[in-house]
């Protein structure tokens, strides 16, 4: 079986508090998975452990068949396009930020045309091209989320990790966003307690804790 991601007997602790124990999950290539559960139960820590931003206590994580422990994390991270709830982009002018991303050594973005962001994506996600001239801290939560989503798609990485990305969007935009990720070719792991992800039907719902 061609698995993109496997969690085996995973245990994550936060200080002395156990977030999760004995967690198992296999995700096939191209599969759409929805992790739902009460908020505040540490679902984001699963993604952070996968990306190597927190350490796990026990168990194993496999990405595309090989254990991530001891691997070059640059390579592991380059498999993922990650969007988090707050879209933690740096303060300051958005355009300058986009240009600095393009200068990153392991950049996978390809900006072309007059607009730095992809025209079709901006249209689909109703992101005004003039927003890039604003400062990121002046964008609303929903605008930042749509910017994060557009950037993530433009990265062209094989796996999407989407952590509560619809919380700041209106009803119609939530639906368009969920539809987009339901129909894409890439593997998708979404964390959300928005009912709309479940209702869409394309996502396999898995439990948490």
């Amino acid at each position: 079986m061609d698995y993109d991601i496997q969690f085996k007997d995973l245990m994550i602790k936060f200080g002395k508090k156990t977030i999760i124990e004995g967690y198992n999950l296999d995700i096939k290539k191209g599969e759409k998975v929805l992790i739902s559960g009460k908020s505040g139960t540490g679902k984001s820590s699963l993604i952070k452990a996968l990306l190597g931003f927190i350490e796990y206590e026990a168990g194993e994580i496999f990405v595309q068949g090989s254990a991530i422990e001891g691997k070059d994390f640059r390579e592991v991270r380059n498999q993922f396009a990650y969007v988090n709830q707050d879209v933690t982009i740096r303060k300051g002018n958005v355009k300058n930020y986009l240009l600095s991303i393009q200068s990153y050594k392991h950049n996978t973005l390809n900006f072309s045309g007059d607009n730095l962001l992809d025209d079709e994506l901006m249209e689909y996600f109703e992101f005004d091209p003039l927003y890039v001239y604003k400062n990121s801290e002046d964008l609303s939560g929903g605008e930042r989320q749509r910017l994060g989503i557009i950037l993530a798609i433009m990265l062209k990485r094989p796996i999407f990790l989407l952590d509560e990305i619809t919380s700041g969007l209106d009803k119609e935009m939530k639906k368009k966003t969920v539809d987009y990720f339901a129909q894409c070719e890439e593997t998708v792991i979404a964390i959300s307690h928005d009912q709309i992800w479940e209702d869409q039907g394309a996502f396999r719902k898995v439990g948490w804790a």
Binding site: F53, R74, R77, V87, T88, I101, H106, T108, L151
Partner: peptide, 9 residues
Amino acid sequence: HYDLMLGAT
């Protein structure tokens, strides 16, 4: 972390 994810060293 987000910058690292975007491809920054």
